[in-house]
């Protein structure tokens, strides 16, 4: 089985977000870039399966659509344990471009399972996995919190209201994962880090694709209103505030 894990290069989740050029451009000054946390979980699960069933999983490839600045992020994925990497040399401006570029590569190579994180923590679109499956005409299962292979059969669980849905699917397919797919992202070992540079990182040129959407500008969230403290003994005031000011009851 060959596994592909799609990884996004995103600002660290603790980044203080700033915009420049009249709020049309994200200010990348001083930003630390990381593997998108959901993609990191997907990669960790893929690596765990390979460790547990080395005869079943032949290889794990990671793929990213981005410029050369994303290579340290890709190397991190290799340090975690991926066997090889592909970077599609493009500067995508919307999800459609990313999904299309990924699809172009996947069409030329055969992968049995294509992992995507449920969303990326930069634009939170939650769209690439679904779009990718649609472009490739493959089944996809979203919001996966469990993925395993038992006797060659894919076992999946996804979160639904009030419980979990247990499913299986044919391969190839797109597995869109969320939290719970593994306990915690894998920390690369010292040997993994030192060996990452020696692993293959293939750069492929991007296909000509036009974006479907255009970003106009960004807006900051409204500042939070001042916090009102209510004496725990004064339930009447609390109810009054929730009713008249917050208008939630």
């Amino acid at each position: 089985m060959k596994i592909l894990v799609c990884i996004s290069h995103v600002p660290d989740t603790t980044t203080k977000i700033k915009f420049v050029n009249n709020n049309t451009t994200f200010d990348t000054t001083g930003v630390q870039w990381v593997v998108n946390p959901w993609d990191e979980l997907a990669l960790t699960r893929a690596l765990d399966i390979k460790d547990a069933q080395p005869g079943v999983v032949e290889s794990i490839t990671v793929i990213n659509v981005g410029g050369c600045e994303t290579e340290p992020t890709i190397r991190k994925a290799l340090a975690m344990g991926a066997d090889k990497a592909i970077r599609v040399n493009a500067n995508p401006t919307d999800s459609f471009i990313i999904a299309t570029q990924l699809a172009e590569v996947i069409k030329k190579e055969s992968f049995d399972v294509i992992f995507c994180g449920i969303e990326s923590c930069d634009f939170n679109g939650s769209t690439v996995g679904g779009m990718l499956a649609e472009i490739l005409n493959l089944p996809s299962v979203s919001a996966l919190s469990f993925f395993d292979i038992e006797n060659g059969e894919i076992k999946l669980k996804r979160e639904i209201d009030g419980g979990q849905e247990v499913i299986t699917t044919q391969t190839p397919f797109v597995a869109i994962v969320q939290k719970g797919i593994c306990k915690e992202p894998r920390i690369p070992s010292m040997r993994g880090i030192m060996g990452a540079r020696a692993k293959p990182l293939q750069v492929v040129e991007a296909a000509a694709v036009e974006p479907l959407v255009e970003f106009v500008s960004y807006e900051y969230p409204k500042p939070k209103a001042a916090c009102k403290r209510v004496d725990p003994e004064n339930v009447k005031e609390l109810v009054m505030l929730l009713h008249n000011e917050a208008k939630v009851i």
Binding site: P72, R75, K76, A79, I187, P188, S189, I193, A196, R197
Partner: peptide
Amino acid sequence: TEEQKMIQQAAKDFAERE
């Protein structure tokens, strides 16, 4: 270097998590 930054981050993640 890229490796040094990665080692620093790995140590930080390990210390905070474990």
